[in-house]
Design a protein around this nucleic acid. Structure first.
Length: 878
RNA sequence: GGGCGAUUAGCUCAGCUGGUUAGAGCGCCUGCCUUACAAGCAGGAGGUCCACGGUUCGAGUCCGUGAUCGCCCACCA
């Protein structure tokens, strides 16, 4: 047996040094490596979320990734072969912007690729005084990799220090060749299966980023607006009616007017034509169930396009497209009087419209309102079309979640994945996944049930994964968008901007009867929804894929159930007719102490570094482990303190137990036996909690049991016996074994949460004794730790001993006597059954209480298990 | 307007299928340098479980209604 000399050990755990040391050793020992030779049943696969590589990690990342790591470490100790990869999401707008600024470049599809291009960070002088350098998309991607690699190093260092037990050989980034290849393969596969289509259609459009956005990227913002009542004329009459609108600037794009079919006020108008003010366009008045008589004036104008309802009306009534708003959010040149732009007074209409050309929505609105104040714009009669002063209202407006101006519906050519016909199978797939906590499945289901649009996967950005696609040009050099020249799978990843489709030469690019590249890139979710396929080497190594897919666990946060989780289910269903993971664990958010979500815009985010320095990784992990899955938790530094104290306690308990020099013997004392049975039962309960992902409850219980029953009770009660050289070797040896066995069990119970201190203490003796050099490869405690424990599993002698000792402590405390003061004579009382049961442990209790002699009066009126001190004669303190 | 979650001690949170007197940690109060640990030990105070109804022998727990907070969705004239 190995014993340690406590004098050789520091009084406090030097967490920073220990973290550095163990990180290095764990790497050397390769204890987190996945073993590809072991069978699927023994494997536990994690579909790790790839964090966005821009800026720095914050405390919320630490929180959720630690929770996953605790689950993983538990599974590893249960003997599972862990596949735990790490990815980096460096695909998308944040990276694009950073690369542009950092290197002072712009991605330009016409610029030829420069092999081996290396650029340095731009100086601030360059940024101000010189125009950005144009680089090809290939080069842009290389620069992106170059820049993000630096960040990834910093992220990796933090993850390692935090103790994430990731297999760092399984690393990927969403812009690397492998991911781009798979994303493009995914598109081709979906294309061949008929799940994607392209169409020219009104799409939600961000006028600043100048790209289409998907439903999932849209958020509502409550904004003040103005409600305008505007008089419209009626064709062939001098009557008018008044519509209400918040978007008068879209008046030139008005193509119809509608009201509810049962609305008596307007029934007579249906079938007639309305005349718009200012532009004098005759437009049909039709009934629609979608019109709400309670809102505004009950009758409204239909424009191309003010909102999603306009799109519906436009389609249903086959109205003309009057696209006044350009892709840049400014009014385009149009001419009234031409086909599709009918006007009773084209000259007046054009004069009015001319004022709007090139203006933004905001400016145009002011101008239109001014024009509406003038009676000359009236469609009929001679009152100003503006029927009343605009009224301020609050209303929700759709925004791109990263955008600054409201979304517009603009008709553009986009690619979609057809989803609306697959709602039922998508809902069904969600039901086959075990969600933790379970109510998160409802969020998935609600989103899927309420899906309104197919998935728009094309983005009009330069940087991202390009569509592996070209279009042929006709004899006039015009692209035929109905013909799709797909890349060959062997050629992936491909950049159609720099490579030619098979059967064509590069010099046919852009010339008649040649080809033109699709310039769009994929929505970033199109790539990240493939993480299970990316990690499992789908389409690269089918044997590996079959061993790793579906994954066992998908950890993520709840706000991206509708995006990442949903789209991942979509991909797995459409590609492999399977669910992507068996279980999903949804972590909550970290809220600031005022219970507000931490976010960059609020400026209340916390970075983890100083916390790691102050409380150690173990302390920070303890805090993260204290929160249950799915529960938003207010940040509380107190819990970090508790974690740090646990680390110290483990250090000291380890020191004490492992420095006892007595020779271990089989556990034979009744107190020790009873403790071991209690511990065995406890381990079974905690194991069950961990199986259900209830690690937080488990930790709380482990902590309580360790503190109350082990350090404050067992150690104190057997301490005297363990040190007493005059005792029978069996009794003393039993104490030594109980202490060491208990310590070993607790170290392993704590190991998933506090990997550093447990490894440290484990290394002092148990590593060599067991031949298991890292605790993180040691078996999770279980019946095997107790097979040699004899005796009665139902004995409560341990609890009785604790009660008795507590009664003595209480007596001392109430008498104002220090608990360490020796007692010469102690007179106790208990009922006879209790006294008899506790008999075998009384020597230990008296040693702990420092009582030299005792008597116990049988009082059968007392409750079972209780002790009372009748009298104590204190010895003179020495 | 619909859905999901939350509301328990000063603070952060547990309380599973209803069952003695509602728990933990932190904080607070009182003792104590006691031979692993003062980053500790012993003892203690502190709660109309959001409100009102209901079911039940019994409700923090189940059912209604309402309030407050958070998130998701819908509405956007």
């Amino acid at each position: 047996m190995l014993t340690i000399d406590p004098a050789q050990l520091p009084t406090h755990f030097q967490s920073k040094e220990a973290e550095e040391k163990w990180c290095r050793i764990w790497d050397d020992w390769q204890i987190y490596h996945y073993d590809a030779t072991r069978p699927r049943e023994e494997t536990f696969v994690v579909d790790t979320p790839p964090p966005t590589v821009s800026g720095s990690l914050h405390i919320g990342h630490v929180f959720s990734y630690t929770q996953t790591d605790i689950i993983v470490r538990y599974q590893r100790m249960r003997g599972r072969n862990i596949f735990y990869p790490m990815g980096w999401d460096d695909n998308g707008l944040p990276t694009e912007r950073r690369v542009q600024n950092y290197f002072h470049v712009r991605c330009d599809l016409r610029t030829p690729y420069e092999p081996g291009l290396q650029l340095d960070a731009a100086s601030s002088k360059d940024l101000k005084e010189t125009p950005p350098r144009n680089v090809s998309r290939q080069n842009f991607i290389e620069l992106c990799l170059q820049l993000t690699r630096e960040d990834e190093k910093a992220f990796t260092a933090l993850w390692k220090r935090l103790g994430l037990s990731v297999d760092w050989r399984q690393e990927y980034s969403t812009i690397d060749d492998h991911c781009r290849r798979l994303a493009q393969y995914s598109f081709i596969d979906l294309y061949k299966k008929g799940h994607v289509y392209s169409v020219e259609a009104p799409t939600m459009w961000d006028v600043d980023f100048q790209t289409a956005v998907a439903q999932a990227e849209v958020e509502d913002r409550e904004l003040p607006g103005m409600l305008h009542n505007v008089r419209f004329g009626i064709e062939g009459s001098d009557q008018h009616f008044t519509i209400a609108t918040t978007r008068p600037e879209l008046l030139p794009a008005c193509v119809g007017v509608t009201a509810h079919p049962n609305d008596e006020r307007y029934k007579s108008l249906f079938g007639k034509k309305a005349i718009t003010p200012l532009f004098f366009a005759p437009v049909p008045i039709f009934p629609s169930e979608l019109a709400d008589p309670e809102k505004g004036t009950g009758i409204l104008m239909v424009c191309t396009f003010g909102d999603a309802n306009d799109v519906v009306w436009w389609r249903q009534n086959q109205l003309p497209l009057r696209q006044t708003l350009g892709r840049n959010g400014r009014f385009d040149q149009v001419t009234y009087g031409q086909d599709g732009w009918e006007s009773l007074k084209p000259a007046a209409a054009n004069a009015a419209y001319q004022q709007l050309v090139g203006k933004t929505v905001k400016t145009a609105q002011k101008l239109v309102v001014e024009m509406l104040r003038d009676a000359s714009g009236a469609a009929t009669g001679n009152e100003p079309p503006l029927a009343a002063e605009p009224r301020p209202i609050q209303h929700a407006v759709k925004f791109f979640e990263k955008g600054d101006r409201p979304l517009e519906f603009i008709s553009t050519k986009q690619w979609f994945v057809r989803l609306l016909d697959k709602k039922n199978s998508l809902i069904d797939a969600g039901e086959r996944i075990a969600w933790h906590p379970d109510f998160m499945r409802v969020r998935y289901r609600n989103w899927t049930e309420n899906l309104q649009q197919d998935w728009c996967i094309s983005r009009q950005r330069f940087f991202g994964v390009p569509f592996p696609l070209w279009y042929p040009l006709d004899g006039d050099g015009k692209p035929d968008f109905s013909q799709h020249l797909l890349a060959n799978i062997e050629d992936l990843p491909v950049d159609p901007a720099s490579a030619a489709p098979r059967g064509y030469k590069e010099n046919q690019r852009g010339v008649p009867n040649g080809f033109v590249a699709e310039s769009d890139v994929f929505d970033t979710w199109f790539t990240s929804s493939l993480t299970p396929q990316i990690c499992s080497q789908w389409q690269v190594d089918e044997d590996m894929h079959s061993r790793l897919f579906p994954t066992d666990l998908r950890p993520q946060s709840h706000e991206i159930i509708r995006t990442w989780a949903f789209y991942t289910v979509v991909k797995s269903l459409l590609h492999e007719n399977n669910i992507p993971w068996l279980q999903a664990t949804i972590s909550g958010w970290i809220l600031d102490p005022d219970r507000k979500k931490m976010s960059k815009s609020k400026g209340n985010v916390m970075t983890p570094m100083h916390l790691l320095d102050e409380y150690g990784s173990d302390g920070v992990r303890y805090w993260a482990a204290s929160a249950r899955l799915g529960v938003d938790t207010a940040f509380d530094e107190q819990v970090l303190k508790v974690g740090k104290r646990l680390v110290t306690k483990l250090l000291n308990a380890g020191k004490f137990v492992l420095s006892q020099t007595g020779t271990p013997a089989p556990i034979s004392s009744e107190l020790d036996i009873a403790f071991m049975h209690k511990l065995r039962e406890f381990v079974a309960r905690v194991t069950q909690l961990n199986e259900n992902f209830e690690y937080a409850t488990g930790l709380k219980e482990i902590n309580g049991f360790f503190w109350n029953n082990f350090t404050d009770s067992l150690i104190e009660l057997v301490k005297g016996r363990a040190k007493d050289e005059t005792l029978d070797a069996r009794q003393r040896g039993s104490a030594i074994t109980a202490l060491r066995r208990g310590l070993s069990v607790f170290l392993r119970l704590f190991a998933p949460v506090v990997p550093y201190i447990t490894e440290e203490v484990w290394s002092w003796a148990f590593a060599e004794e067991t031949g298991i050099k890292s605790i993180h490869r040691a078996p999770w405690p279980g019946d095997a730790d107790f097979t040699d424990i004899p005796g009665d599993a139902t004995s409560d002698v341990f609890d009785l001993a604790v009660n008795c000792w507590a009664a003595i402590n209480k007596y001392k405390a109430q008498g104002g006597v220090t608990s360490g003061r020796p007692i010469e004579k102690l007179s106790l009382a208990a009922n006879s059954a209790t006294a008899e049961k506790a008999r075998t442990a009384m020597a230990d209790v008296m040693a702990a209480a420092r009582a030299r002699s005792y008597t116990i009066a049988k009082q059968d009126t007392m409750a079972e298990g209780e002790f009372e001190v009748l009298e104590a004669t204190f010895a003179d303190a020495q």
